[in-house]
Computed example of a mutant assay.
Amino acid sequence: MGGVNMNVPVVGYETLSRLSVCKPVDRIEYITNSCIDKKVLDIGCYDETALIKRGTNFWLHGCIANVAKGVIGVDDSKKIPDGGIETGPNSRIFRGNGLKLDGFFDKNIEIIVAGEFIEHIESPLQFISQLKNIFPGRRMILSTPNGVCFANSVLGAISREAQHPDHIHVFTYKILNTLCLRSGLTDYKIIPYRFFATQMILESNGSKKIAAQLAQGVVRGVERFFPLLSFGYIIDARLI
């Protein structure tokens, strides 16, 4: 696992069982650093609803491509041409189904990344099982929003909710732990990640941009003290 220390979290499922959760990390930074000098399969990476991030330090695929040995991206967006899109000297995104990956098998793949993906698909359990079958022993890094994050709780107080129109699942720390256990994973950790208002900040200017930056800072302050209210989670696992 390249020196990554993981095990199975001890999680009690009684309502008042205390959960030991680490401080939230920066999602882009954590995943990018994990991919340095690695051969990466990046699933669902095009993110056509947030292409404003392309060319910035906030586009996960681009950040991975900058540090990885090589990146094969897979996304079913119709905006991707038949020959794929070159995203760097050693990276390309191909149009394909992230749930049917046999055609993208590469014995040299070291890490499979699926950022903000499992909340979009019908069966996350089947998806992880597929990865175990095709890429046994490899490292898998997933990320997904937290269904009980502080940011959405605040929005709920003013009759609002921030959700992508394609989301069909919401996850919490315990639900993700159950997903890992039911997938048969025996070596994993679940790490909270910090709130980001990236798209709002990039699309705004003047007072609106300042307000978005201030809101981001306030939410991150709360998350630091209450990590179970963090914006999302990363699953970092070995596929065994």
Rank of each mutant, 00 (worst) to 15 (best):
R54N: 08
E223P: 06
F94E: 09
L228F: 08
F94D: 01
I93D: 01
D37K: 11
A211Q: 10
D187W: 03
C45T: 05
M200T: 14
S20K: 14
V21D: 05
C45P: 04
L202G: 03
I52T: 14
F104E: 11
I72A: 07
V11I: 01
R194I: 02
E203V: 01
K53C: 12
F135C: 04
N133L: 13
D42S: 13
Y173L: 11
E203Q: 15
G83Y: 08
A151Y: 14
F105Q: 13
D47I: 13
I36S: 11
G147L: 09
L239K: 01
D166P: 00
F104K: 10
K208E: 15
S123I: 01
A65Q: 01
I43Y: 10
I28S: 09
L41N: 04
G156T: 03
I43S: 10
A162C: 11
P81G: 06
Q130I: 08
N108A: 14
V25R: 13
H120A: 03
I36W: 05
F105A: 08
R238W: 03
D37M: 06
S77E: 07
S183W: 00
L99F: 03
G88I: 07
R138M: 03
I190W: 05
L176N: 02
A162N: 14
E116G: 11
F231P: 00
H164D: 13
G12L: 02
N90P: 00
R238M: 12
F104M: 08
N57E: 13
G44R: 04
I158M: 13
S77K: 02
A215N: 10
A151H: 14
I72F: 04
F171R: 02
D75I: 10
D75A: 04
I201T: 11
T186F: 06
V74W: 10
R224L: 14
V218H: 09
D236R: 08
A157L: 15
S34G: 09
C22I: 13
Y13G: 05
R238P: 00
C149G: 10
A215P: 02
I134S: 03
G70E: 15
N205K: 15
R182F: 13
F127Q: 03
Y193A: 02
L185C: 00
K100W: 00
S123G: 02
W59C: 07
D37W: 02
C22D: 14
V74T: 07
Y30D: 07
V21T: 11
M6W: 07
A50R: 15
N108C: 12
I118N: 04
E110Q: 15
L60K: 02
I175Y: 08
R18W: 12
G12D: 06
V71Y: 01
D102R: 12
D75C: 04
R138H: 10
K100E: 15
I31Y: 05
N97M: 09
S159Y: 12
Y233A: 03
F94G: 00
V10A: 13
K100Q: 14
E110A: 11
N97P: 06
T144R: 10
L202I: 03
G156E: 09
G217Q: 08
V40A: 03
T198C: 08
A197L: 11
